[in-house]
Design a protein around this nucleic acid. Structure first.
Length: 254
DNA sequence: ATGTCTTATATAATAAGA
């Protein structure tokens, strides 16, 4: 199963990119974040013509997540206890694998109230996994975590540690989440640093490759030994009018 | 501090979120 995650930063604007990319990359499952539309506005027809079912949890203006799949989607659950009114999580079962698309809060700055929301969200996400069971469960949680796991995942770790995305507090929240029994799929197969999934529009970060690896595919203990490949596809970030994020993929033996 | 992009309101600029 080839599983991908992509924060598209508005599906209305990025539908063309998504359809082009689905043809090129041929993922079986795609977790989307920041679709920024209500569920009823989701382009079910275009996605269906591309060969994918869709489970969607939208919201007006902000946030919004979805799971696309070539394989049948079962047991869809929209949302969880930690969202506080924002559409940030959808889960489903596909070929016996529990798949979660998550859009974790940005946090704005360590002094912001939104930073405390991010903390609560992470604690609730861990509690949610505990509620699902033990990490022997075959599970992949994919999305924009808005935290880079390691210093090698950040172009300027010293500066980033003072802001959102690589702050020491955030690393502790992420560590607590993944202590449930999650593994960063890229790091199971590749220890190379300097690989990013997001580059800031404002600083022209992509041209300078000044980015952060804040999007990940995490797999449970139950899937750890089945990860055959994991990579970041930087190509769509170079297209005209791109999302600020690029797709991240993992190949899981079934 | 700045840079850019997206959405909403509203029909031109601004504000908010990222």
């Amino acid at each position: 199963m080839r599983i991908a995650t992509w924060n598209v930063n508005s599906l209305r604007v990025r539908l063309g990119h998504l359809l082009d990319w689905l043809k090129m990359a041929r993922p079986d499952v795609v977790c989307l974040q920041e679709i920024k539309m209500q569920t009823e506005d989701f382009p079910f027809d275009a996605i269906g013509e591309a060969g994918y079912e869709a489970a969607v949890y939208g919201q007006k203006t902000y946030n919004g997540v979805a799971i696309l799949s070539k394989l049948p989607i079962e047991e869809v659950v929209q949302g969880f206890a930690g969202e506080e009114g924002q559409s940030r999580l959808i889960e489903a079962v596909i070929e016996g694998v529990h798949v979660i698309s998550a859009y974790c809060p940005n946090g704005e700055s360590p002094r912001s109230d939104k930073f405390q929301y991010k903390k609560r969200f992470y604690a609730a996400l861990r509690a949610h996994l505990d509620g699902l069971g033990k990490s022997s469960l075959p599970l992949a949680i994919c999305g924009d975590f808005n935290i880079a796991p390691q210093a090698q995942d950040v172009w300027d770790p010293k500066e980033a540690a003072k802001q959102c995305g690589f702050h020491p507090d955030e690393l502790a929240w992420l560590a607590h989440l993944t202590a449930w029994g999650l593994h960063d799929s890229l790091r199971l197969v590749d220890d190379k640093g300097g690989q990013y999934s997001w580059w800031d529009y404002r600083t022209g970060g992509f041209r300078k490759n000044q980015g952060m690896r804040i999007d990940q595919v995490w797999v449970s203990d139950g899937l750890k030994n089945k990860v055959k490949k994991a990579w970041i596809d930087t190509e769509p970030r170079g297209w005209d009018k791109p999302s600020d994020h690029t797709p991240v993929l993992a190949e899981i033996a079934m």
